[in-house]
Write a protein that binds this DNA or RNA. Structure first.
Lengths: 205, 205
DNA sequence: CGTCTGTTGAGAAATATTTCACAATTTGAT
DNA sequence: ATCAAATTGTGAAATATTTCTCAACAGACG
């Protein structure tokens, strides 16, 4: 299999969401690259090229089967199985993430949350128990989640990352407003909630 | 001024954050493109090229003045003034956004929040009053925020966008897990909180 | 002042990504 | 069975972005 450009990987996630919306709104069984491109604000050719990296799935004259394409994208993205994750930081952001509908739907299951606030420890967010951070290592070693989600204040972000790496997670998604460093073997993705506001501000100016 | 590539605009936001971290951690007055590139996980040449789009600010032999560069990036991004914003949806996600430290620091001031839940209306999140959605138009027309932030459930996202557009905001940042359509004159940015999880899942697979 | 060091800015080259354009294919109608 | 219409998949062309390279320059030091 050829190497897939990162822009393509990012767009696959967009296509997935567009397809879900398309299905919910029209219930049509097929979608053309033209239509999908319109929904994703992309040229139809790039949609076809993106999809063709992974094989031929379209039907000339008809388009792509919405259901097959959705399943296919999930397979490509390694999302057809459950992923265990832990959450460090049980504040509003952590709560918001746990409540984000895409989360469960994509197969991410949060198996534990950690927080240093004694008022939070022992309580639950939905189904998820909140442990003290001192239990992070033992819980992660026991439950073996691949993903660690960081939703702590900026000052605690790096330390949370260190703990997660030491405990053995393989990927870290950092939602804290600070950059963290991890060893190269760990997949790290930084999410900056204000980035799109900044970009919008730029285009407005 | 030449047209600035979108990747550059996105990286500027990253540089800003890296510079803030660099300043907090080292307190050094100058940073080289090499160092900044290391922090942002980028090649030094692209850092210099990005910055040179906007003029010459570096000092050969020394690098860039951290403070000047920060101010300069803020000016380029149109962030050296206050931006008023309104929030539609006063749930966990809205609350998390309002508490996100970058928000205030970048000059975004949320002047009103809206929600349909009668238990929330009349209360406050921090300093921000929660109004019923029926008041959205009048409040926006009175306070003239440029930004509308959507943090409602998927099903209500499009309607929220419609209301914001009709009321006259100029940019919409959609954090809801559904795509929305707005007229081309509106700056629209979609934020998908699960995207980076999906991408991490891809690279893990 | 001259020299050495470290670093910028930017043209040129390399690479990556997107778009074009069209032959090939399937559908659906007659 | 034939044909018109629609749409795919992909090589080639166009465009965009990144990286290389190095002349030019500022600062430090003797």
């Amino acid at each position: 299999m050829r190497k897939i450009p990162e822009p393509t990987v990012l767009r696959l996630s967009t296509y997935r969401r567009c397809l879900e919306d398309f299905k919910a709104q029209t219930n049509l069984p097929f979608v053309s690259s033209n239509e999908l491109g319109r929904l994703a604000h992309r040229n139809a050719a790039i949609v076809r090229k993106d999809l063709s990296y992974f094989g031929e799935y379209g039907v000339p004259g008809k388009g792509y089967s919405v259901d097959h394409l959705l399943k296919h994208i999930l397979r490509i993205m390694n999302l057809r199985r459950e992923h265990r994750a832990v959450l460090v930081g049980a504040g509003n952001l952590g709560r918001a993430l746990l409540g984000y509908p895409g989360f469960k739907k994509l197969g991410f299951r949060v198996v534990a949350a950690f927080d240093n606030d004694p008022r939070k420890v022992g309580r639950k967010i939905g189904e998820v128990a909140i442990f003290p951070v001192s239990k992070l290592k033992s819980e992660v070693e026991r439950k073996k989640p691949a993903f660690g989600l960081i939703t702590v204040p900026a000052a605690a972000a790096q330390e949370s990352a260190n703990l997660l790496v030491e405990a053995g997670v393989r990927a870290i998604i950092n939602f804290a407003p600070a950059r963290v460093w991890v060893p190269p073997r760990i997949v790290l993705r930084n999410v900056d909630l204000t980035r799109e506001l900044e970009v919008a501000s730029y285009y407005l100016g």
